[in-house]
Nucleic acid binder design. Structure first.
Length: 992
RNA sequence: GGGCUCAUAGCUCAGUUGGUUAGAGCACGCGCUUGAUAAGCGCGGGGUCGAUGGUUCAAGUCCAUCUGGGCCCA
């Protein structure tokens, strides 16, 4: 039974080996190798709540200077998006770092609660249930909707490890907050910046209400498409000659041709816009002359030709009629002259059926794709028209009432008054155009102003509820003047002041916000919505508006006590009860309240006033930092700047940090990506990868640029996470029998340990600089390199021999443990702001040998390297030795490939080199340390002159060496011990 | 169309005032180890630095143009 015998022998051998192995100080820890983040992180969130971590962090730094990162409020209408998660985690990382640096870091999270998206969602729901609610009831439902999502989002943010004053956040819908919004607005009124003016909005005629972009559906629509003559008055003859530099054909009428698909807007025409750079031609068509853009002349002539054919069979010629002449078409179209649009500016034409001029103006948005290049401009009926109207100081004229009918303003022709611009659903079905359109067309035809007429099917905005085409219509709005008292100049100066202290991160943020501030027109702050802060305006029976700063403040006080629904529940008289009114106001009983609410950018722009000005949660004003996506240069950064400058003469922040947006692996925005159809919620990522991996991913990339995310990237971050986790685990497990009281003074430490401390000191310095510059990706790279190269592949690998095999209290072993203790302390702290969960877990095992402890890594201070850690001489020596180590490895590798060697410990090395070379001298200096450093059993140094360093490798088995069964090193001779023959070093260790 | 901005190995990042064959980690390939073991170690392959043109003795680095992304406007 030979097999049996062999088995017995091997069992005996294994038994002996096991016995020897038990004499080693092998690593020991409960800190799990497998993180199980998705499952175990929620436990730590609960633990932090239990020990009141946020409060304890604030207490720890009580009395210290504060670093206030003011939270930009996310909108409360759904789950936390991964982009919002990115933003919150960056803020949390900053706060945790600053806190460890000794700053008090009050962080009051907030929510932006008002606004259209919520109102719309709630409205749709109400519509589906066919309910009829009062405004106050609708607002109560919006409030409940917002509150629901605040609850959900709070949980999702906490799940990400974001720490803050979650029990006392700010909400823009809170009565006290709404009051502060009004008080901020009162400052605008007080400085006389608020004025009333018309501005075009999308208007639903059936509902008599303004619509937002989101409430509009684009659908195909058949519209009249007409070319209309605007006659150039005879009196302009001299000007025409000047412009075109030629004589006008005698006796021929001259017109500028416009093109439109909304004839009903023609009564509001106040100008014709041309492009300054486009060439315009004066064309002789035989019986008349017209002016059109040169690139569109062909299209205009085609339209004319089509018109001629259409009319030829039915309309007999009558030569004295211009309309008829056009119908028959010219035999020739002769270009008389040509001029750039800019030359036509201020040329006057006559409105086709109202007695007034319509001057030529210039506009860059004029295209030569369709039409005539001469754009009918009605500042009260179009956004671009409105802009042009402002530029040329034209009236923002809108002769159409709330009900969509022409009003009798004394300027509208009597036969048009009261006609509606509405096309009902029935009209649409019958392909019938509006009465207003029909009447205008008839008027144009009657005085021969129609040059050509067709029908056009195109995409046109419709009201989402009534399904009828919307109209663009100027209505009264409230505006804030930004130039009246030089606030724009002050804002720009504040931007520069921040820049002087490197407050814009990245620096180009300054250019970005400057551009936004410089180009911003006066702020239209009224919205025809319900879910918002009511504008404290009152109206008399003649619709005259009354607004006053003190009254607004008095209303604010009432809102603070009763909530803003008071505005909808109470009459004007009730609201104004006990309020001292300005002398010019009529009796409150004759007043009614306005229906407009404030632009939500006033809400969020007032957060610094509502939170920081009251030192809520221990904050202060101005904030040290605002941190949001780069879209906020035009949004929150700007609205906050304006409110700060207008209400408090100063920017509400000292620094502004911006980050990019999350994109897919091809750096395309995620919504465009076909691979990302799944919901991009924070929870969907956290539940799959764990918050710490998501946090590490956020830290790993330069967030100033766009941040790509996909499975491959997250997988790599997961690998890096494991590297950090295993680094902690190695250190914790090898410190199982180390008491910090046994720490070895640095001066008495081993060379390699001192080298490791030197590297750690460098790491701390570089990571500190990186954190200070908000370059978290540098921290990631530095730690990654440190853990993988400096520690895992070098220091930790070399240390195993001494940690496992030397006597427990051997000075060398204790030296290394002391170093590991210091290094762990440094690395765990450096990574704490990023790996909030894992570092806290490691810290609990480090300090309490348990998964949780009452202490927390987040209560610790930032690591500071002791001055004696830095040692340039040791660093230089070991750097040299490590270069030789690389040569040794290169030399070993072929032998390994050839099967002559397995582990490096089986190798004996001979190094030869010039005795007088610096390299060789370092080798000699550290001669005894070399085998350990190279992780080989034996090193021989041989000097020669003028020879480059050369490494020679032989398997120890070829020498007459024996392998110590305990430490696996090959030695020339063994000694006997209590556990049989071992090497002299092990024999010594076994005695201890 | 305008403003701001980005572009270096498969991925994430370094590349100093322009100056030797462009670096690191991860990933990948091939081995080793089995006393960090759902770990660890070694070696290796891999980049026309988005494209084109220019300045210069010399350009990833400076200039111009273009291409492709992103954010914000129109």
């Amino acid at each position: 039974m030979t097999l049996f015998t062999v088995d017995l022998a091997s069992r005996a051998f294994l038994g002996m080996a096991q016995e020897l192995k038990d004499t080693l100080r092998l690593p020991k820890t409960e800190f799990p190798m497998r993180a199980g983040l998705a499952q175990r992180e929620p436990g730590r969130v609960a633990h932090w709540d239990k020990i009141g971590l946020y409060g304890r962090i604030q207490k720890k730094n009580a009395g210290r200077p504060a670093f206030v990162l003011h939270d930009g409020p996310p909108f409360t209408n759904g789950d936390v998006h991964i982009g919002t998660a990115l933003n919150k985690v960056l803020k949390d990382t900053v706060n945790r770092y600053k806190s460890m640096r000794g700053f008090r870091t009050p962080y009051v999270p907030g929510w932006d609660c008002h606004g259209l998206p919520i109102e719309q969602k709630v409205s749709r729901e109400i519509q589906e249930k066919k309910l009829t609610l009062t405004t106050a009831e609708l607002r109560a439902k919006c409030d409940a909707f917002a509150e629901f999502w605040i609850g959900k989002q709070t949980g999702q943010f906490k799940r990400l490890g974001v720490i803050g004053d979650w029990d006392r956040p700010y909400k823009t819908k809170d009565p006290a907050f709404e009051a502060d919004i009004l008080r901020t607005f009162a400052a605008f009124i007080e400085k006389d910046l608020v004025y009333r003016s018309k501005k075009p909005v999308y208007w639903s005629i059936p509902f008599e209400t303004a619509l937002a972009e989101a409430e509009i559906e684009y659908k195909d629509h058949v519209s009249p498409s007409i070319w209309v003559r605007f006659r150039v008055a005879e009196s302009e003859g001299e000007k025409i000659r000047k412009i075109f530099g030629c004589e006008m054909p005698a006796g021929k009428p001259c017109s500028v041709l416009i093109w439109t698909t909304t004839p009903w807007t023609l009564p509001a025409n106040l100008a014709i816009a041309v492009h300054p750079e486009v060439e315009y031609v004066l064309v002789d068509l035989g019986s008349e002359c017209v002016i059109v853009a040169e690139p569109l002349l062909g299209a205009v002539l085609s339209a004319l030709e089509a018109q001629r054919r259409k009319q030829a069979p039915t309309a007999p010629a009558s030569t004295d009629d211009a309309q008829s002449a056009a119908a028959h078409g010219p035999q020739t179209a002769t270009v008389i002259a040509k001029v750039k649009g800019a030359g036509l500016e201020h040329l006057n034409t006559r409105h086709p059926f109202i007695d007034r001029a319509s001057p030529i103006v210039l506009a860059d948005y004029v295209t030569t794709d369709t039409g005539t290049g001469c754009v009918h401009t009605a500042p009260g009926h179009g956004s671009e028209d409105y802009q042009t109207g402002l530029k040329y100081k034209l009236e923002i004229y809108c002769p159409v009432g709330d009900d969509g009918r022409y009003v009798d303003d004394g300027r509208i022709p009597p036969d048009l008054v009261d006609l509606t611009t509405l096309e009902t659903v029935e009209d649409l079905a019958a392909k019938k155009t509006s009465p207003a359109n029909i009447a205008v067309l008839r008027k144009l035809a009657s005085n021969h102003s129609v040059f050509a007429q067709q029908k056009l099917t195109h995409s046109y905005p419709h009201c989402w509820r009534s399904k009828t085409p919307i109209i663009f219509r100027a209505v009264d709005q409230w505006f804030v003047s930004l130039d009246k008292h030089g606030h724009r100049a002050i804002a720009l100066r504040e931007i520069e002041k921040i820049s002087a202290h490197q407050g814009w991160v990245p620096a180009w943020g300054e250019a970005r916000i400057r551009g936004a501030v410089e180009s911003r027109p006066d702020w239209c702050i009224s919205r025809q919505r319900s879910w918002g802060v009511p504008i404290p305006a009152f109206y008399d029976d003649k619709k005259k508006a009354y607004m006053d700063a003190d009254v607004a403040r008095a209303i604010a006080d009432k809102f603070a006590r009763h909530g803003s629904n008071l505005w909808y529940d109470a009459t004007a008289a009730q609201l104004l009860e006990g309020v001292k009114l300005p002398a010019s106001w009529p009796s409150p009983s004759t007043l009614t309240t306005g229906r407009d609410t404030l632009d939500v950018w006033i809400d969020s722009g007032s957060t610094h006033a509502a939170v920081l000005r009251h030192n809520q949660g221990g904050t202060h004003w101005p904030a040290d930092l605002y941190l949001e996506g780069s879209d906020q240069h035009r949004g929150w950064f700007q609205s906050s700047l304006w409110t700060g400058v207008i209400a408090f003469d100063q920017a509400p922040y000292k620094g502004v940090l911006t980050h990019g947006f999350i994109v897919d692996k091809n750096r395309q925005k995620i919504s465009k990506s076909s691979t990302y159809q799944k919901p991009q919620t924070s929870d969907s990522y956290v539940s799959q990868h764990g918050a710490d991996v998501i946090r590490l991913w956020i830290a790993s990339q330069d967030f100033r640029d766009d941040m790509p995310v996909d499975d491959e990237i997250l997988k790599h971050v997961g690998e890096a996470y494991r590297l950090f986790r295993n680094t902690f685990r190695y250190q914790l497990s090898n410190l199982f029998d180390f008491d910090p009281r046994e720490a070895v003074p640095v001066a008495q430490m081993d060379t390699l340990d001192r080298w490791a401390l030197h590297q750690t000191a460098v790491l701390i310095r570089e990571c500190t600089a990186a954190y200070d510059a908000y370059e978290f990706h540098r921290v990631y790279q530095l730690c990654n390199q440190f853990c993988s190269v400096t520690l895992s592949a070098t220091y930790h690998d070399i240390l195993k021999d001494r940690l496992y095999t030397l006597g427990t209290n051997s000075p060398l072993r204790r030296s290394s443990q002391t170093a590991l203790h210091h290094i762990f302390n440094a690395v765990v702290r450096i990574l704490a702001p990023v790996l909030a969960f894992t570092t806290d877990e490691a810290w609990a095992y480090f300090t309490a040998q348990a998964e949780y402890s009452d202490d927390s890594i987040h209560l610790q201070s930032w690591p500071v390297p002791a001055t004696d850690w830095t040692n340039a001489e040791i660093e230089a020596d070991v750097a040299t030795l490590l270069r030789v180590r690389a040569m040794v490895n290169e030399t070993i590798e072929p032998q390994r490939a050839a099967g002559k060697l397995g582990k490096s410990l089986d190798a004996a090395i001979t190094i030869s080199g010039a005795a007088d070379s610096a390299e060789f001298r370092v080798l000699e200096k550290h001669r005894d340390f070399l085998p350990e450093l190279f992780i080989v059993s034996h090193v021989t140094l041989g000097s020669a002159t003028g020879v480059a360093l050369h490494v020679h490798v032989r398997p120890c088995s070829e020498l007459s060496f024996k392998r110590c069964p305990r430490c696996w090193r090959w030695v020339p001779a063994m000694e006997s011990s209590s556990h049989g023959d071992v090497c002299p070093r092990c024999a010594e260790a076994l005695k201890a």
